[in-house]
Design a protein around this nucleic acid. Sequence first.
DNA 1: TTTATAATACTTGTATACAAGTATACACGT
DNA 2: ACGTGTATACTTGTATACAAGTATTATAAA
Lengths: 243, 243
Amino acid sequence: MNESNDFLYPQKWLSKASTGDRVAYELRMRIIAGLFESGTILSENKLAGDFAVSRSPVREALRTLASENIIRLERTGAVVAGLTEKEIEEIYDVRLMIETFVFERLISMDTNELAMELSKVLEMMKVAVKYQDADEFSYQDILFHDIIIRSIGHSYVLLIWNNLKPVMESFILLSMRVRFKENYEDLTRILKNHELYIDAIKTKDRDLMIKSLHENFDDVQGKVDDLWRSQQMLSKGVKQQDD
Amino acid sequence: MNESNDFLYPQKWLSKASTGDRVAYELRMRIIAGLFESGTILSENKLAGDFAVSRSPVREALRTLASENIIRLERTGAVVAGLTEKEIEEIYDVRLMIETFVFERLISMDTNELAMELSKVLEMMKVAVKYQDADEFSYQDILFHDIIIRSIGHSYVLLIWNNLKPVMESFILLSMRVRFKENYEDLTRILKNHELYIDAIKTKDRDLMIKSLHENFDDVQGKVDDLWRSQQMLSKGVKQQDD
DNA sequence: TTTATAATACTTGTATACAAGTATACACGT
DNA sequence: ACGTGTATACTTGTATACAAGTATTATAAA
């Protein structure tokens, strides 16, 4: 019953978060990590008990997760949907869609300052690799794309991204943790891709941008199967400790 | 204080909605209609009083509206953002982005059944015009695009659309009501555009599809200024009755 | 008059209480 | 044995109560 000791989401990222947000972040991680069988029904009362909070923040969290498509709110309770291979592809579809849109806008802008900012983030990512900090690496990876998308000042595109971001963050966190342990050499390729992306922004080269984004995805896509399986194994192990 | 008598959102569309949803739909309409000065601070207690409900559904509604970018939740309360000309453009940007994506998928699908469905909806729209039913027309207009977007079975694209839809519905409702009164001849042009869209889907003609979508927007865009002003005048009038 | 301080009123976040509806399980009748 | 009905337990939706923090306002002092 007591699941309070091993949180999947980095606690230090939640310093100013409300209880509702904390529940959402942690629950999201557990769902995406596959701790719940797809189809599992989560009741507000039970979750409130598990997290030792009241129903109010739990309700809030469930509505958030429903708006991200990883659960469905039904009369009988919240049904866990999780992330299938198909949905991961779809999320990358949307990111590609968004960033392609963003890039078109960037072409008619001064991108020097942006490229500088991105270079800084890229340096941070390299440091994270050096010190084998998967969570920090994930954070900077998300930040990288966040900066790009914010740069055009389009509130509704930003809205979509903000809706997508938590799920993507969870997904990246989980897969990076595995990579840092088992596929360390992947990381240099990821770094390379981000460098290409910066180059594309500097030179405003559409094709290069698309190429780097696609490769970034193909990279994920090719490996996601294995990564996922091992991650889920891991999660199942954690789960069994609790039951 | 009592604003209970003149709702902007069609009540019959709310038959199965929860209190929270009702508040969200109505509040959304009032915000988009411009009943609140941009920057107005809405407090949960005051809204609960105005709608004669408790804070719970109001909170729920406010979170929904915040996720649609028409209010911002701050420590001091919910700040009304409303829809500026810029944001309306942005919403159409996103719809164009989505539907372009959808169309690319449609090209490799059998679109006969879809075209049939859309033709039916278009007939409904014509009937709505004939009987001067602005709300029904708006409903079918939204449904038209809803059907197209659903047709490719892409859950995350659908997610974006579902997030965007309520705001777009409100916007369309308000502008159609004005058009039906003051710019009746616009409607035949809108119908024409939708016919073009169906043709584009039947023949899988990218350019025609983009053209019809763009014209649809340009149509809105050109007139939106005037429509909006008169709509807002109207709203202000309503508001003054209350104060 | 202006500034500082204290009190008050109002804000959200969280917890709890209550109501209505639904699924389930069990018992009873056929 | 099987179907039906009823009771019970569990679900969400809504209302209310409570706590902590903040902005504002009023009052007093300089």
